[in-house]
Structure formats: C-alpha cells, structure tokens
Design a protein around this nucleic acid. Structure first.
Length: 103
DNA sequence: CTTCTGACA
DNA sequence: TGTCAGCA
C-alpha cells in the first residue's frame, strides 16, 4: 500500500499549493507561523506541501468560513488529530479483544 | 523561492 | 483580525 506514503510525500511548491486551495502564498506562510500546519522543507529552505497538507489547508478554509480565527482553528486541528489517533487506538483495542468474548 | 512591512475591510 | 501587494 504505497498510498499512505504518497499522501505524506506528494510535494507542491507554495505557489501551486496556494492556487490549489484558493488562497495567497502569504496566507500559507501565516498559517505556518501560527502553528496551523508544518509543511516539509527542502535543504534549501523552500516549503514542500504534501497531499495531507492540502487537506488541512482546505479544512482551514472551511473553519475560516465558519468564522473561527486562526487560534481557534489551530485548536480544532489539534483536537481532530488527537481524535483520529484515539479512534485508531479504540479500533485496535477492540480488534485485539477476542471477538467471541465480550466483557 | 524566502522574510518583512504596510494598507485595507 | 485576516488578506493581499510590494519590496529586499
């Protein structure tokens, strides 16, 4: 399954990432400064936006439309990430329990 | 490509 | 406060 790896490696320059999500390059840099996301960097220091980064970027746009400020969006993203992790743990925990016996 | 600065709603 | 334009 190389798809999960492609997700984190699909790389876009800030100019194409900005155009893909419909915003300016300046905003993407601001989002990073405010801790909303952390795109990869080349050895030269240029940002590399992955497919996952584009997803969170579009999520940021949604939250922005809902009226949240960047600080609020940062917390939502953190909580959602935490939630996905817990969901995975819960799923793994229920799978490790023997399906026939429930407590 | 980068950071920074200022103007606008 | 977030967005955008221009500069170095």
């Amino acid at each position: 399954m190389g798809q999960a790896e492609d997700r984190g490696r699909g790389v876009y320059a800030i100019s194409v990432a900005a155009e893909l999500v419909g915003t300016g390059q300046q905003n993407l840099r601001l989002y990073e400064r405010r801790g909303l996301l952390e795109p990869g960097r080349t050895l030269g220091g240029t940002r590399q936006y992955s497919e996952d980064d584009l997803v969170t970027l579009r999520r940021i746009g949604e939250l922005l439309d809902l009226g949240l400020n960047l600080a609020g969006i940062r917390m939502v993203l953190l909580l959602e990430a935490d939630n996905r992790r817990l969901e995975g743990e819960l799923k793994a925990a229920s799978a490790s329990r023997s399906p026939v016996r429930r407590e």
